[in-house]
């Protein structure tokens, strides 16, 4: 059984089909990139997979559970237990320090554990920045805090919506390296990106176009390492 399966999923806003009859399977431990022009429905799909939105039509099976039928409260619980989210705009709580931001995810999940949170920060190379507020961190550092926050509860899937959209190449590489580490530990990754170099690192790239699955590309020589061809 696949970890994630979308069956004829559509998301319709009035006339607009943001997602139009999309079917797809993602296996456990897979690293998938999603590409597509702006407005093609990438974020819409991520929101549905991430239990933050429901499809208008179709079924979404996550770990065998049809999340398109669950109520809001259960969706929150599923999201909390199974999904790690990373956003383009980082979204850290401004009045909490880096380590507290990581602990926040633990708090809503189960019990905050400062030691574990510090370890997570150490994994993303920010042990020495634990007590800094987001405003005192660079964009790359903030995104690494977000990665630490996303992985702290050992989620089944990490969903990243343009995680490197606001980062320079150096930080992009750090983040992709972190993804590589997570992938090699068996975490499933779904990464939305505009950046072909980031997309190419994944095992599989899906291309959306006006809500439809347009193209699917398997990366034969998958290394998980980013390679800048300039």
């Amino acid at each position: 059984m696949s970890l994630l399966e979308l069956k004829n999923v559509s998301k319709i806003y009035g006339e607009l089909h943001a997602l139009d009859d999309v079917s797809l399977k993602v296996e456990k431990g897979e690293w998938v990139s999603i590409m597509g022009p702006s407005g093609s429905g990438k974020s819409t799909m991520m929101n549905i997979i991430g239990c933050m939105d429901k499809p208008s039509l179709g079924e979404v099976l996550l770990d065998g559970v049809d999340i398109s039928k669950e109520n809001k409260k259960n969706l929150t619980t599923i999201r909390r237990d199974k999904i790690g989210l990373i956003f383009q705009q980082f979204h850290l709580v401004p009045y909490l320090t880096a380590v507290e931001n990581v602990m926040l995810a633990q708090y809503y999940h189960s019990m905050p554990d400062e030691k574990e949170a510090l370890e997570a920060l150490e994994r993303v190379g920010l042990a020495d920045r634990a007590k800094h507020l987001p405003s005192q961190l660079s964009g790359g550092e903030q995104q690494r805090v977000c990665v630490a926050r996303a992985l702290i509860n050992y989620p089944e899937i990490i969903l990243a919506d343009e995680p490197t959209g606001n980062l320079d190449e150096a930080n992009e590489e750090i983040v992709v390296d972190l993804f590589h580490k997570l992938h090699s530990e068996g975490t499933t990754l779904i990464v939305v990106t505009h950046d072909p170099e980031v997309a190419e690192v994944a095992q599989r790239t899906l291309v959306l176009r006006s809500g439809k699955l347009h193209k699917e590309k398997i990366n034969e020589n998958f290394t998980g390492k980013i390679h800048f061809n300039d």
């Binding site: 929150t76 999201r79 926040l104 995810a105």
Partner: peptide, 16 residues
């Protein structure tokens, strides 16, 4: 709202 949305996204229920 972003911060609150984020809390909800990472698993906060309405009550909390």
């Amino acid at each position: 709202s972003q911060e609150i949305g984020l809390m909800k996204a990472i698993g906060a229920q309405n009550v909390s």
